[in-house]
Amino acid sequence: MAVAGHDRCVIAIRPENIDAWLNPDPHHLSDMCVILDDPVDAYYQYELVSKEAE
């Protein structure tokens, strides 16, 4: 069976950081790293839906 997924994932940012993330201040781009360092806790799982997917 092939490994599920890929080498990218969603990083769920906190709701209070959405405006800052979508409208970054070009003079304070390091603030974006602070936002990424404080993600919402999330759990993702997958299920095999077809034997043909193997």
Score class of each variant (00 low, 15 high):
residue 2 A to C: 06
residue 2 A to L: 08
residue 2 A to T: 08
residue 3 V to F: 09
residue 3 V to T: 10
residue 3 V to W: 03
residue 3 V to E: 04
residue 3 V to Y: 06
residue 4 A to Y: 09
residue 4 A to F: 10
residue 5 G to T: 05
residue 5 G to H: 01
residue 6 H to W: 02
residue 7 D to S: 14
residue 7 D to E: 10
residue 7 D to Q: 13
residue 8 R to Q: 08
residue 8 R to A: 05
residue 8 R to C: 05
residue 9 C to L: 10
residue 11 I to A: 07
residue 11 I to G: 01
residue 11 I to Y: 01
residue 11 I to N: 07
residue 11 I to Q: 08
residue 12 A to Q: 06
residue 12 A to S: 08
residue 14 R to P: 11
residue 14 R to F: 01
residue 14 R to N: 08
residue 14 R to A: 14
residue 14 R to I: 04
residue 15 P to N: 09
residue 16 E to G: 08
residue 16 E to V: 08
residue 17 N to V: 05
residue 18 I to C: 01
residue 18 I to N: 00
residue 19 D to W: 03
residue 19 D to F: 04
residue 19 D to C: 06
residue 20 A to G: 01
residue 20 A to M: 03
residue 20 A to L: 07
residue 20 A to H: 00
residue 21 W to Y: 04
residue 21 W to C: 03
residue 21 W to Q: 02
residue 21 W to E: 04
residue 21 W to N: 00
residue 22 L to F: 05
residue 23 N to Q: 08
residue 24 P to L: 02
residue 24 P to W: 05
residue 24 P to V: 03
residue 24 P to F: 00
residue 24 P to D: 05
residue 25 D to F: 00
residue 25 D to M: 01
residue 25 D to G: 00
residue 25 D to N: 03
residue 26 P to F: 04
residue 26 P to G: 00
residue 27 H to W: 12
residue 27 H to N: 15
residue 27 H to G: 10
residue 27 H to M: 08
residue 27 H to I: 06
residue 28 H to P: 07
residue 28 H to I: 07
residue 28 H to W: 02
residue 28 H to F: 06
residue 28 H to R: 14
residue 30 S to F: 06
residue 30 S to C: 07
residue 30 S to H: 10
residue 30 S to Y: 02
residue 30 S to Q: 06
residue 31 D to M: 07
residue 31 D to G: 11
residue 32 M to E: 01
residue 32 M to Y: 00
residue 32 M to T: 11
residue 33 C to P: 03
residue 33 C to L: 13
residue 34 V to I: 14
residue 34 V to A: 14
residue 34 V to T: 12
residue 34 V to K: 15
residue 35 I to Q: 04
residue 35 I to L: 06
residue 35 I to C: 02
residue 35 I to S: 01
residue 35 I to V: 09
residue 35 I to T: 05
residue 36 L to N: 05
residue 36 L to W: 00
residue 37 D to I: 02
residue 37 D to G: 15
residue 37 D to H: 13
residue 37 D to A: 15
residue 38 D to I: 05
residue 38 D to L: 11
residue 39 P to Q: 07
residue 39 P to W: 04
residue 40 V to E: 13
residue 40 V to Y: 05
residue 40 V to P: 03
residue 41 D to V: 10
residue 41 D to H: 06
residue 41 D to Q: 13
residue 42 A to E: 08
residue 42 A to D: 06
residue 42 A to M: 12
residue 42 A to C: 12
residue 42 A to V: 12
residue 42 A to G: 11
residue 43 Y to R: 15
residue 43 Y to S: 14
residue 43 Y to K: 12
residue 43 Y to C: 14
residue 44 Y to K: 11
residue 44 Y to I: 12
residue 44 Y to C: 13
residue 44 Y to R: 09
residue 45 Q to R: 11
residue 45 Q to V: 08
residue 45 Q to S: 15
residue 46 Y to H: 12
residue 46 Y to Q: 11
residue 46 Y to P: 06
residue 46 Y to V: 10
residue 47 E to A: 15
residue 48 L to S: 14
residue 49 V to N: 12
residue 49 V to R: 11
residue 50 S to W: 00
residue 50 S to G: 08
residue 51 K to V: 14
residue 52 E to Y: 01
residue 52 E to P: 03
residue 52 E to C: 05
residue 52 E to Q: 07
residue 52 E to S: 10
residue 53 A to L: 13
residue 53 A to P: 04
residue 53 A to C: 04
residue 53 A to V: 04
residue 54 E to R: 11
residue 54 E to S: 09
residue 54 E to L: 14
residue 54 E to C: 13
